[in-house]
Design a protein around this nucleic acid. Structure first.
Lengths: 219, 219, 219, 219
DNA sequence: CATGAATGAGCCTTCATTCAT
DNA sequence: GATGAATGAAGGCTCATTCAT
């Protein structure tokens, strides 16, 4: 057994991870230059391969884009579905606010993973050419996330914890900071600038979301 | 009068508007296919011109992108500067909340103009290839907008109208709904779906922003 | 009478010279960039005209080249024919050497006129694309010149003035310095360098041609 | 042995000669149509390649021109330098005339190689667009050649073999026949015409150069 | 006559994709 | 599997030529 393992040649590292390595390179190049302008050769270089070899793993550039997006979205979608299916019907002791906080923090974690957060930006940039990917992302990630958050808000309203707000709009306020932060980090952030702390951001955001910034007027 | 109208030559419509017509076409194609994949010939067709004629007005595809972005950003930047310079020092009677509302509604108007709101999406999509445009947009539009809103928030805090929130983060919550809505309309919106009313959205958003969604706990 | 002359409008100088002005510009541009790379618009500029107006005088770029070459070659060819037809049968008192000298000096004068000497260079450069022009130049200028010089050399041989050299080759030695000087001035000359005096050159050349550079060995 | 020959793959002939094959094609097309009008596709065809493949070896048409000129000039320049450095200081027994003869015959050999003699013609034709190539050719070939010949002439003068001629001009007479012959063969020669023998030409030329065509006048 | 906007053919150059080894 | 030479379609850009005014 041990021999078998040692027999794995060292000059070819993890060949079974090749597709993943290629997609890593693709993500970088697609984001850096856009899908159309990204060159297969550059993507291959990131994976330590030659141009032609990429085609052993992906039949076309577009297939790479599809695979890249799937690779990121699928586990997220699965996780989101798990979460949303487990929002307890009656909040079982936990306040709606606390549940919202927990959920936002999970999203926040994804935000700090560049390999994950680059995907929606890529999708935004290529939405004109590949609306199906935008659609896929919306269905699998955004709609699910919004539905999950929406159901918590609804339960909060039902339980008397929240005001009777228009849920459809209220979700947007809640979610938008996440999206803005993604765009900010990927597009408008300037090197050398002090980072925005995602945790802090979400904390302040949620506090405002729950309580507002206005001081209660006495009298 | 009628003669005057007929005197307008039919074979060359409003030639002085050509550059503008071309940029309109460019915006459509750049958004639809991305800068790299957009074809000059298609852009020309939108303006009723042939491929070569475009080069009578713009020396290269990249120049068109620059001109397109400038055309949209410059007047907005000017307007924003006017607004931010006229935020009264002492709120002079008007509440900070009301000023924020007025400002957000102005931004909301731009949001409903597709020719304007498509620009930031274009910039986001091309940020990898043209970081200078993202930088320009941030400096001229985002930073100015955030500074203006920030100064109102600060005044609201000073006057006792607002809580002592962290302004830097608080601005983000305020602004992000705008950005999300832009992305939504340009990327994730599905035809046939009921539109989100920008006015309503801003109204709900600001209400939450000011007051929070949580019901005050009695007792 | 005088009035008539004054009636010539000043705002349109010598319209009948337009074709000539255009060809002047064409010569400059054809030599500077080559026929293929020369732009009609640049040629027009030299003549103070707009691109389209050139086509009022010449139906195509190639026609301009033809006309340009004809304009220069025709009078030269006529002059050469006159000269060669008047080489006296018996040298009538003048030595063959003196006749050669006179002929070379005439050629030398053309050499110093850039508008004339640029033409053969143009023809050389475009020989691949327009062999008919090279052929024309050879027939009308080179062959006639060589024939004229050849006939003088032959007469010099007949009269005992010259050795019994192979005329065919001997002409080449005589003529080649002219051609080299043309190429030199048009191609290899460096600005700022001291000019080669054409007169001096021809004088030294002919002296060598007649007498050689070798000192007679005393015996 | 035979196996070795058969082992040469048929589908990819001498790939290491590709750049050379391409330059051969480029020389033909550049000379035939001029640099600007030559089409990459035609050049590629000469080398049995497709348009795009040319760019695997040369990054642009202009690079091809540069490489083409260098390829020809470099070895010539090296050879010339060797020759000029070995002109003996004291003519060591050999007469200056004999040395000149040897040198001219070497130049004559290059003249009969079309691949070599086409280069100066190309340079002449493109001098307007690429003066740097004319300059390079002058520095590396013409100036070196003239300097070498000049130094021999000077030694001939010093040794009493030659008259005290103006060397600067005398060189031109010597060299010009070479240049003329190049132009003749490449531009004015007509198919079917009897060839000029370069050897004969140089022999006659040098004889005239040394001794002149004039018969010594008795009495 | 003169203009210059408009056209569209043409060519350099790039790059996704193929394929012989 | 891996390579990289080769292909050829595609598109940006230029410019000779046309033509309505």
């Amino acid at each position: 057994m041990i021999e078998a393992i040692e027999a794995v040649p060292k000059w070819r590292r993890r060949p079974e991870k090749r597709p993943d390595d290629i997609l890593d390179g693709a993500l970088i190049e697609f984001r850096e230059r856009g899908f159309a302008a990204a060159r297969i050769e550059d993507i291959a270089k990131h994976a330590g391969l030659s141009k032609g070899s990429v085609y052993l793993y992906f039949s076309s550039k577009e297939e790479m884009l599809k695979a890249l997006i799937s690779r990121t979205i699928k586990p997220i979608a699965t996780a989101l579905k798990n979460i949303s299916e487990h929002v307890p019907d009656d909040l079982s002791g936990e306040s709606a606010s606390d549940i919202l906080r927990r959920m936002l923090l999970i999203v926040g974690e994804n935000l700090t993973n560049k390999k994950i957060s680059a995907i929606p930006l890529l999708i935004i940039g290529e939405a004109g050419n590949f609306p199906e990917h935008a659609d896929y992302y919306r269905s699998e990630v955004i709609d699910v996330t919004m539905a999950a958050l929406g159901s918590v808000i609804k339960k909060g309203i039902a339980s008397g914890e929240f005001k009777n707000v228009d849920v459809n709009y209220a979700i947007r306020t809640l979610v938008s900071v996440i999206m803005m932060q993604m765009v900010w980090n990927g597009v408008f952030f300037r090197k050398g600038e002090p980072d925005i702390s995602v945790k802090e951001l979400i904390s302040v955001h949620l506090d405002i979301y729950l309580n507002g910034i206005r001081l209660p007027q006495e009298g």
